[in-house]
Amino acid sequence: MAPTNSNPGNTQIEEEYSGSLRQVKPTSLLLGELVAHLRQHRTQLREEWARRITEAQLLTAMTKQEIFAETTSVYDNYVEALETGTLEAIQAYARNLSERIIPRGVETHEVVGIVLLLRDVLARSLFAKYQSDFDMLSRILDSYEPAANRIANTVAVGFVQERERIIREQQEAIRELSTPVLQVRERLLILPIIGVIDPQRARQLTEQLLRGIRTNRAKVVVIDITGVAAIDASVANHLVQTVEASRLLGATVIVTGLSPEIAQTIVNIGVDLGKMNTVGDLQGGIEQAERLLGYRVLPLAEAS
């Protein structure tokens, strides 16, 4: 069969290259042949692949049936991507798959591992088919390898991106949860802080507090840091800045529950304590806030 490729440069190269060859086929036809081969031996190759996955102890979080179902669709998507050269479909599938399997604890190395296994299984079957014709084999591999690499790359990247997206979402959720601004009385907010404060969280905390002051028209804010074991100098500074910024909005801040370590840090960085209104515990803080707002809390018996 004569080269059907009309590109003169290409033809020349192929002729040079194929000096001793009987046949020269353009890449697209080779790929077509390759895809036909993979379609024809679909069942057998797929089973081989599933066997290799089990052997390598990958995807242990999934059952045999699930692996079978997933491998079938991955295989079909893979062959289709080889055939069309477009990666959108397999990219979308990889995302979708990642979304389903990440919550079940499937690791990155497993996903990359199974794609590389499939690549290996298919390459071996090509070796077996063309072993008698080394030249043909090398040309088949020329068209198979780049496409396969691209696919492997796409799937791995898709998986990692999906993972990162989930991690980002969770971080966001944790952060949202970790800094509630609560109104306990009209014009009185409390902001209980629990856990480690890093600079990023400190900044977010300030933003939420300042926004809360404005939306709730708060006069007094009690920041309770009983649940914070230690802070570093930059976070302590940030806390002081938060107190000052709140004052610019017309709110008084009372800080409660300073641990000895935090008290030490604040003294060490030399903050002017005159401006910081601190009370020992949350109860004391709320009581003082009520006094500032003009409330007096009495037992019912006394009040009547």
């Binding site: 933003e207 300042l210 028209r217 910024a245 709140s246 610019l248 909005l249 709110a251």
Partner: peptide, 28 residues
């Protein structure tokens, strides 16, 4: 004073010491 402005000010060290501030006109 807007929340963002307030925080930017304290970061720049502009604290308006000894000046009374309030949330809005009504509060003032």
């Amino acid at each position: 004073i807007q929340p963002e402005v307030a925080f930017a000010m304290v970061q720049l060290g502009l604290k308006l010491e000894n000046v009374t501030t309030a949330l809005d006109l009504e509060e003032g």
